[in-house]
């Protein structure tokens, strides 16, 4: 078990090397003039050269890469060309918002997708099943940013039920950061009205982010449930007179979930990447919004930093899923 985890963590090394190389290459290949953008339209050639020299941008790429990696192993993600703030500090500030959003979306997707998949499998080939299949295809096909805009139009503009965007209104003080998740911090410090406001703000972006994974998880769960229901051990359970609810939970659901789990792990990474668009639409102060702003000003260090953090989280998420897989399915216990 421990060696398994260590082996998987070792996999992080090639992932990080690959990510930095690719991101550096892309940063260099992009047409444009980041130094010119950062220095401003009225800067002289000398000022621009000084700025480039300060950030080492006049050096050959491989030397820049070496310097960056050398900083990285000490936890230094370099400095933003535009804001001159260390990227590491920015990442630490924006990461909790993104994680909060992604976890909320995941919770919705798994918490609704699995029971819905189970139900539609039990109702298969009847109208609720057909309806949910059609809706699922719609949810999977809909681009997230477009869905986000539709939700905003419907629930914020027309119905006025939910706030349009942001994490909290400007007039509300966020609770002191404990976990960095406003909802959890508010609950921990007992600020229930802040919790309520934060949840209302979280609902729409989380929904926009979760709908596609929800639909996919539901469909996966439906097909694996149907497959499990045809297994011999389900017939045996019925022949032995086990009560229906026990067959459903212990025999069918548990075996079907273990097949669905892989998709859930993949989706976690997909959601982390997907936040870029949703955070931009909902003005959610997370890594995605941070990366979008950096890309627009061709400030590549933050972009590389965000890519690295998401890559790291992806590997960790898959590790967690693999461990959960071992818990649910005893055949894959690790040695």
């Amino acid at each position: 078990m421990i060696t398994f985890i260590l082996r998987r963590l070792l996999m992080l090394v090639p992932v990080l090397v690959g990510l930095t190389v690719i991101m550096f290459a892309i940063a260099r290949l992009l047409p444009g003039d980041p130094v010119g953008l950062a220095a401003g339209p009225n800067a002289t050639a000398a000022e621009r050269a000084a700025l480039a020299a300060e950030f080492g941008l006049d050096r050959p790429v491989w030397e820049q890469y070496g310097t960056y990696v050398a900083g990285l192993v000490q936890g230094d993600f370099a400095t933003s060309l535009l804001t001159r703030r260390p990227v590491a500090a920015d990442l630490a500030a924006y990461l909790p918002a993104t994680l909060e959003l992604v976890l909320a979306a995941m919770l919705l997707a798994v918490g609704l997708g699995i029971p819905l998949g189970l139900l539609t499998a039990l109702w298969r080939n009847r109208w609720p099943d057909y309806l949910s299949q059609v809706l699922a295809i719609g949810a999977i096909s809909m681009p997230r940013f477009f869905l986000g805009l539709l939700l905003q139009l419907c629930f914020a503009m027309w119905l006025n039920w939910l706030p349009l965007a942001g994490r909290l209104p400007i007039i509300v003080f966020p609770p002191d950061p404990i976990t960095g998740f406003i909802t959890i911090d508010a609950a921990l410090t007992g600020q229930w009205d802040v919790l309520r406001t934060a949840l209302l703000h979280l609902l729409m972006p989380a929904l926009a982010l979760s709908l596609s994974p929800l639909a996919t998880i539901m469909r996966m769960m439906r097909s694996s449930t149907i497959e499990v229901m045809g297994q011999d051990y389900v017939m045996t359970a019925r022949a032995l007179g086990l009560p229906r609810h026990l067959i459903l939970t212990r025999t069918i659901a548990r075996n079907a979930v273990s097949a669905t789990l892989t998709v859930i792990g993949l989706y976690f990474g997909w959601l982390l990447g997907g936040t870029v668009l949703v955070e931009t639409v909902f003005d959610w102060p997370g890594l995605g919004l941070y990366a979008t702003k950096a890309i627009l000003s061709q400030d590549m260090m933050p972009v590389i930093g965000v890519a690295l953090v998401i890559g790291l989280l992806f590997v960790f998420a898959n590790l967690l899923i693999d461990l959960a897989y071992g818990l649910i399915n005893p055949k894959v216990r690790y040695s």
């Binding site: 051990y233 017939m235 359970a237 022949a239 025999t251 075996n255 399915n329 005893p330 055949k331």
Partner: peptide
Amino acid sequence: IGMIFQDPTTNLNPTA
């Protein structure tokens, strides 16, 4: 009525 089926590899719930 008790029943025993043919294939003992597939007739037990693998996750319990």
